[in-house]
């Protein structure tokens, strides 16, 4: 009876929602669990981008005016237009299926971002390598050009370029690559400057290797990790940039189902038909989020030097 106070108190079974557990779950989901972002990436970007023409339920451009502004399937909808499983995310002003358009939008986003990264990344890396390796006036010249491109107002310049050349798929890719290369050049140059001081470069030079050979065989392999991380982190930025340009009418031209264009289309109907603008926006958000998570993860794995940035 009197032993009650003497019993060693066992730790209470902590409930699943205690702060420490919750923190653990979030932490696991963000950091130590690539499965999460890999799943999002696959579902939102890669799968629809690769298979949209066959797996999308409808033609993204086909207008069905009788079905216009149908609400998504989970909402109550209106009397005369009940939501149906045929248009899971609802339809837009012209009766086009939102889900199919979002799926085809992934294709556009992926193509634009990969092409722009390939062009801008190659140009920037080459110039960064040359600038960092040779130094001197070449370095000064390239770095001043980089400064110029970094101090131009990005979106405004893109708008002007598109106004001059007219909006098209290739103008969008061109504009984004032109605006992208300077960041690569600067980062790669800094990396090369450090590598240049290493002993193995001096040894290569002593053994008679040409500059081209040293750059390709000895410097480049040492920046690939940085390059991979940089590219991954840039995919999100590029997708956001493309969406912003398309939203402003300076990216992918209508009627292509680019996500930014879709948000712009839904803007006027936000009060009555929120799904037109919200759905593609969620697609942008999830894609960029998962790309950024992947970039952070890769950075921790591949390039500890960048970690603190």
């Amino acid at each position: 009876m009197a032993t009650e106070g003497n019993v060693l108190e066992l730790p209470k079974e902590s409930s699943w929602y205690s702060p420490s557990k919750l923190k653990h779950y979030i932490g696991v989901a963000i950091k130590d669990y690539p499965v999460l972002w890999l799943t999002i990436l696959f579902v939102v970007l890669i799968f629809p981008a690769l298979t949209a023409p066959w797996t999308a339920p409808h033609d993204p451009l086909k207008q069905e005016l009788s079905k216009r502004l149908t609400a998504p399937v989970w909402s109550t909808g209106s009397e005369d237009k009940p939501p149906s499983w045929s248009n899971i995310f609802g339809t837009d002003k012209q009766g086009r299926d939102i889900l199919s358009r979002v799926m085809h939008g992934s294709r556009i986003s992926l193509m634009v971002s990969l092409s722009a990264l390939a062009i801008g990344g190659t140009l920037g890396t080459t110039l960064g390598l040359v600038s960092g390796y040779f130094g001197g006036w070449v370095d000064h010249l390239i770095m001043r050009i980089v400064d110029v491109f970094l101090s131009l107002p990005l979106i405004l310049m893109a708008l002007v370029i598109v106004a001059v050349f007219g909006p098209s798929f290739w103008t969008a890719i061109g504009v984004i690559s032109v605006l992208l290369w300077s960041r690569y050049a600067r980062q790669i140059r800094a990396e090369v400057l450090a590598i240049k001081q290493m002993d193995f470069i001096a040894r290569a030079r002593v053994s008679g290797a040409s500059n081209t050979r040293i750059i390709i065989k000895h410097v480049f392999p040492n920046i690939t990790n940085t390059l991979i991380v940089l590219a991954t982190l840039q995919v999100g930025t590029v997708i956001l940039l493309e969406a912003t340009l398309s939203f402003l009418g300076a990216g992918i031209p209508r009627p292509n189902p680019a996500w930014g264009v879709m948000v712009a289309d839904g803007r006027d109907h936000i009060a009555s038909a929120w799904w037109i603008a919200v759905m593609p926006g969620i697609a942008i958000m999830l894609t960029v989020l998962s790309m950024n998570m992947m970039g952070d993860w890769l950075r921790d794995k591949l390039d500890p030097k960048l970690r603190q940035v």
Binding site: A243, T244, V263, I270, V278, G281, M285, L286, V288, M293
Partner: peptide, 18 residues
């Protein structure tokens, strides 16, 4: 921070208006 870098600002603006 992650969300801040992934939300398109024009979309956030429209959703906030809504």
């Amino acid at each position: 921070a992650l969300l801040g870098q992934s939300l398109p600002s024009f979309w956030l603006a429209i959703v906030m208006i809504w």
